[in-house]
Amino acid sequence: MLKPCTIVLGMAQNCDQAEGDLIGADRGALVCARQQRRMVMAIGDFDSVNAEEMTMIRQYADQVEVLPVMKDETDALSALHWAKEQGYQPIILTGGLGGRQDHQLANLLLVMYQEVPIILREKNNELSCLEPGRHVFKANAARFISFFAIEPAVITLEGFLYPLDHYFMDRGDTIGISNEIVDQEAVVTLDQGRILVVRCNDAKLNS
């Protein structure tokens, strides 16, 4: 049976968006420990925590892996590799938006180009990727839902304020921005291509 996990990254304020087992990535492990949340793994170079904080992390982690500061991949990617090896699906990332733009972009690329389902989840935003097929979305607090082509796609939207019928969506096309679900559930059908989905419940972000 597939089991979800949440990788808590350094920009997380708390673990409130977590689902399944917790993995603390670098300073994200300290966030979990301060909330007294048990982690199956704490991984990172931990160059941003002091000795007292590291002791707290070890207290709340089943396993700890300390990585070298000089390395070829981010702490988030190392945590993701470990989660994939354990067979977790989907893998949720929280604390990956805000802060440095390069880190934010790197986390977005993880969502778009990994071979396992990755969800980037924050208080007001959730980003995920859709593969070809039929996908059902239910109305919730996330009022706005947007669709962007990761690669050229043919998309049909049913049950949305702005429906589409076998629309060819190329990269850079913004027709899918700021849509809304108008029925109890809505259906996205992808005949080809891959789509980035962004759900947002902050009306101030509506353009």
Rank of each mutant, 00 (worst) to 15 (best):
I177T: 07
S48I: 06
D21M: 04
K204Y: 15
I119F: 09
I43V: 03
A141H: 14
A106S: 10
M11N: 14
P68W: 03
I145R: 01
I175L: 12
P4S: 05
G193R: 05
I177Q: 08
D72K: 10
E115Y: 11
R143H: 15
A142K: 15
P152N: 09
K204H: 15
D170S: 12
V154M: 14
N124F: 11
K138G: 12
I150Q: 05
D72E: 13
H135Y: 04
K204G: 12
V188M: 03
M56A: 04
P132T: 08
I43Q: 04
L97C: 04
E180Q: 15
A83Y: 00
F148L: 10
V49S: 04
N124D: 14
G87D: 07
N179C: 07
T94C: 02
P68C: 01
I181T: 07
M11R: 13
N206Y: 13
E19H: 07
V66A: 10
D102W: 09
N14D: 11
A18F: 02
P163T: 09
M54R: 05
L205E: 13
G133K: 08
L67Y: 02
M56L: 07
F160T: 04
Q114L: 11
T74L: 05
R34F: 05
L120I: 02
G96W: 01
I181A: 06
